[in-house]
């Protein structure tokens, strides 16, 4: 069986001179979480864009469940998007401010009417009931269904974004700094929730963050990106092994 996500030697440049990614290769297995660590400008977000099919690599290949995402166009590309969903850093920016919460949550399901997630098969009723079931999944009560995003706290909004990301039962959930804009106590809640969902639903994660402690908590394996190159890749348990790249060691030395 091929790995769920296979990224093979992708390269990407913007303009003529700026090389953002060079020969980046990694894999994510089914149900696995890969943590991706890197400074601002290291190319983390470009990797996200390429995996989501929002942009095409200049070179290299990207496979999701054996399907070459970088070659897809039009309908096929759109169709493949349901397999990979994303949760961004700023939950306020990922929810439409004029849409009630329940509409935001079921919007992906409206776009892909053929998708029937396993965890929603025994929900009877209409879309509001589906939305309520999804909110329940992320620990939110149904009293939030008719609210607007600005009536929710940052942590609640991020939970809604996660519910939305899960609604299509994707194979891969890309979490791009999902907790950096949240308070410490809420960060812990969201990290626990993400881990719980991963274990229950068997979804694979690409967990991108510059919080190395959070990456260590979430990930099975960790990859370190510097100036567009993956310079270190290892099992999370080997973070402190003496073979680590000097740059990786810098990350573990910095905090208190």
């Amino acid at each position: 069986m091929p790995p769920l996500l296979e990224v093979i030697k992708i390269g990407k440049s913007y303009g003529d001179s700026v090389k953002v990614l060079r020969e980046v290769s990694f894999q994510i297995g089914a149900g696995e979480c890969l943590g991706l660590v890197g400074e601002s400008g290291s190319g983390k977000s470009t990797i996200t864009r390429l995996i989501l099919g929002l942009d095409k690599p200049d070179s290299g290949e990207i496979f999701v469940s054996g399907q070459a995402v970088h070659r897809l166009k039009g309908k096929a590309l759109r169709h493949s998007r349901k397999h990979v969903q994303v949760v961004f850093q700023d939950p306020a920016a990922s929810l439409n401010p004029r849409l009630r919460i329940w509409k935001s949550v079921v919007e992906p399901l409206e776009n892909f009417p053929d998708v029937e997630p396993k965890f929603l098969t025994n929900v009877s009723g209409g879309q509001r009931e589906l939305a309520a079931a999804l909110l329940d999944r992320v620990g939110l009560g149904s009293e939030l269904l008719d609210r607007y995003p600005d009536q929710l706290s940052g942590g609640q909004k991020q939970r809604v974004a996660i519910a939305r990301g899960l609604s299509l039962e994707p194979k891969l959930l890309v979490c791009d700094e999902p907790t950096s804009s949240l308070d410490v106590s809420v960060q812990a809640q969201i990290l626990n929730l993400l881990k719980e969902l991963k274990e229950e639903l068997g979804i694979s994660y690409l967990f991108i963050s510059h919080d190395i402690a959070a990456v260590r908590f979430m990930s099975d394996r960790i990859a370190v990106l510097k100036d567009g190159q993956l310079i270190d890749q290892f099992a999370a348990g080997d973070l402190f092994s003496p073979e680590r790249h000097p740059y990786t060691r810098k990350w573990t030395e910095t905090p208190a």
Binding site: S185, V186, K195, I212, A213
Partner: peptide, 23 residues
């Protein structure tokens, strides 16, 4: 607050000691 942070090294708990509720 001190316990809610994932530890950088040493034993990693399966779940973090989150503070219930919202700030």
């Amino acid at each position: 607050l001190l316990k809610a942070r994932p530890p950088l090294d040493g034993f990693m708990p399966d779940r973090l000691a989150a503070i219930p509720g919202e700030p």
